[in-house]
Design a protein around this nucleic acid. Sequence first.
DNA 1: CGAGTGCTTGACACATTTCAATTCTAGTGG
DNA 2: CCACTAGAATTGAAATGTGTCAAGCACTCG
Lengths: 247, 247
Amino acid sequence: MTAGSLFPNTLMIRKLETIFPLSTEEKQALQNLPIQVTTLKAGRDIVRVGDRPSQCCLILEGFTCVYKLTSVGKRQIIALHVPGDIPDLQSLHLKVMDNSIASISPCTVGFIQHEDLRRICERYPRLTAAFWRETLVDASIFREWLLNIGRREAYTRMAHLLCEFLMRLKAVGLVEDDTFDLPITQAELADVIGTSSVHVNRVLQALRGDGLVQTKGKQMVVPDWEKLKEAGDFDPLYLHLEEAGTA
Amino acid sequence: MTAGSLFPNTLMIRKLETIFPLSTEEKQALQNLPIQVTTLKAGRDIVRVGDRPSQCCLILEGFTCVYKLTSVGKRQIIALHVPGDIPDLQSLHLKVMDNSIASISPCTVGFIQHEDLRRICERYPRLTAAFWRETLVDASIFREWLLNIGRREAYTRMAHLLCEFLMRLKAVGLVEDDTFDLPITQAELADVIGTSSVHVNRVLQALRGDGLVQTKGKQMVVPDWEKLKEAGDFDPLYLHLEEAGTA
DNA sequence: CGAGTGCTTGACACATTTCAATTCTAGTGG
DNA sequence: CCACTAGAATTGAAATGTGTCAAGCACTCG
């Protein structure tokens, strides 16, 4: 699963291209973007609240999360990002970070300078649109998470999250036989769905008991996609994957 | 409070201009945007999930909300919008609406065709940036709401919401003497902060009892901003108002 | 003045949190 | 290769925030 090892930017190109085909020139421009690749252990901050970054961070391998803290130290994970995502693309236009970003699993990430991104956006307006759209899909996921956390109970929330993960990982080729890696701790899952880790544990047991998921260590198996979808009240519309290629 | 009555677009221009000054040409282009103005009663849908709009909706007067429904009919309000906002700007790049938008109070709204917006974005890249930024601020608010709903209890959530409202309404000149109109039902407030209307009622009583807000009908008075801020665990960073004009 | 809608209140049910202890697991160094 | 250990998962029991139900009250508007 060493996605995009030859050219780190390939992952990003493939993803942007699912929206509308890119010209050779546009692809070339993306391919030539200078990118500085780094590896990280799990649980390391990549960007912090209050930072004024001059670069964006492209996930190449592993998982990262966007999180915020309450003044009493409670953590809410706002978003999970998988290879191909740019979790702080917003920083291109919002000077100060209003959230932190951390690695959840060991990660490879690449940093791209804002100025370089701005340059190719100026030259290729369609790339601007593509990047803009990326941030809009992120926002759409936030909206669904708000519904999920605000109006569904923990069992459903968790099922919903698993559905989303399955679909998003499938989209980047990280699912085989309804099985995917979920290198994330129960305490972290709790921070995602806004409950306690104890409750996450119980909810996962219930889901397993109902035959909706099986766990093999860090691996998740979804034996019955339709059943999980129903349990999670899941409609993939908000991921805006369908409309890809319909430009 | 008939904001922007002469030229409906003026409101939008004023808001975009808080980010960086616009050239006469850019302002002219915005001013000339064809816009179709309509008035609405409270509680009317403006756009619905599944729609594929060919226009965006600019709020001129009144309040609107973005909402989503659970399959069992529970509603979560994802966002509240005030005059000057464009709640479905996302539709410029996401074909299918993943949420609905409704008026909360009687409203005046203006519709702007996507093609017109696209045209001036092509011609004036800085306007693209400005619109993009608008959607990024929306997303930032989603993030804060996720923290709010996921990790704070109802009392704090409500205080936080009031803080946000006060600041956002101040930014568009709709606050006088720490007083602002909140033409929104308790049931709707419940849908905003993800609780029941009964609980909203009790929480509001508690806030009043603690001297954090006073209510005069539909009006809200905030006698002690610092105290409310603390009660709401509120830090305005996420609204990205400060950095305006620092271009 | 009636009617409807929104607000308020009380009592009870229940999902979820918190605390605390125990078991399991993976990674480390000897 | 095994003992050791820190972190993660699991379990139980009690505390609590919040939802639900149901009824009464109070506006507002025609």
